[in-house]
């Protein structure tokens, strides 16, 4: 991975009236990375990327996109940054082709729109009006428009909301292609699956702060359920002794299937323990925990009342 920073956010803070939308966010996105910002609704994700896109004035902190300050250099930022905004529509009666042509006229060296439209499955809809497109088609058009100016950084906010699973996979493929061409991707999402499959690194944001910033594997590894060990057993076993094992965070039994969650390495300890108990496990499975668990750990267990209060104040 290239080590040049593409986007640097330092101490970003944004307050709307009495609501703290972004409390204190700092992060660095490197060139050629797919960087995810993950968090619950109202966590400050959209405000963060809209500030990066130069759409917001900020209360404190600094932002730099390839050396450009988006707040004070609006013109320059639009040339290096492509944006697909959450729930931003186009003129209802504009056709797909007209929108692509219009956006092409905005940039000095636009990407040819026809192959791009083809790539995004819009080739058969060029004469259709925006208001007549399905939600997924509108979304794909919006992505095409974000890419047409050959940006160095592209911001995709709620990228695959409203897409069916097949379309979603196609869009993911496209995002990887874009990255392979050297474009840095900043992805805002609340889809765990999307973050896990697509992102090189993820920042988990909650209540206007970065709670964790790591690779998907790193985040999963740090969760209380980094590995999940399941097995079936015909005889009753002593769950309490499993729970006492080092690193185990939960152990339960349902219909003869036992599930043990815990840190890396718990699986071996479980097998050791079963041997001492003289139980032979059937259908033994060891799986990596999901990002969901890491996410829940970081956003919900962490209900430090002070932080919540501060965010609400």
């Amino acid at each position: 991975m290239a080590s040049q920073p593409a986007v640097e956010v330092d101490g970003l803070r944004k307050v709307y009236g009495t609501t703290v939308a972004v409390d204190d966010i700092s992060l660095t996105v490197y060139e050629g990375e797919i960087f995810g910002i993950l968090g619950p609704n109202g966590a400050g994700k959209s405000t963060t990327v809209e500030s990066i896109a130069g759409l917001r004035t900020i209360d404190s902190g600094t932002i730099s996109v390839h050396g450009i300050d988006p707040v004070n250099q609006r013109e320059e930022i639009t040339e290096v940054l492509g944006v697909q905004l959450q729930e931003a529509k186009l003129q209802p009666k504009i056709t797909v082709q007209e929108a692509l042509e219009l956006w092409s006229a905005f940039y000095p060296d636009p990407e040819p729109w026809a192959p791009l439209a083809e790539r995004l499955g819009l080739g058969d809809h060029l004469r259709q009006r925006f208001e007549d497109l399905s939600g997924g088609q509108q979304q794909r058009l919006s992505i095409a428009l974000a890419l047409i100016g050959r940006p160095r950084v592209v911001v995709l906010d709620e990228l695959t909301t409203g897409l069916d699973p097949r379309a979603r996979r196609e869009v993911w493929e496209l995002v990887r292609d874009v990255r392979d061409r050297g474009v840095t991707v900043l992805l805002v999402t609340h889809s765990m699956e999307e973050a896990q499959t697509l992102c090189d690194r993820i920042a988990i944001v909650d209540a206007g702060r970065v709670r964790a910033l790591d690779t998907p594997a790193g985040l999963i590894g740090s969760a209380s359920a980094a590995t999940i060990t399941t097995f079936e057993t015909p005889v009753a076993i002593d769950l309490a002794s499993l729970r006492e094992l080092e690193g185990v965070t939960a152990a339960r039994s349902e219909n003869g299937t036992v599930t043990v969650e815990g840190a890396e390495g718990v699986a071996l300890a479980v097998i050791e323990e079963l041997r001492t108990q003289g139980v032979a496990p059937l259908r033994l499975r060891v799986a990596a925990g999901s990002l969901d668990a890491a996410y829940l750990d970081l956003t919900e267990n962490d209900t430090d009342p002070d932080i919540r209060q501060e965010a609400l104040r």
Partner: peptide
């Protein structure tokens, strides 16, 4: 007002136009 409400103006604000 329709353009503003549906985000057309905001969207255009992210382009050189």
């Amino acid at each position: 007002t329709g353009y503003r409400e549906s985000g057309v103006l905001r969207r255009l604000g992210t382009t050189p136009a």
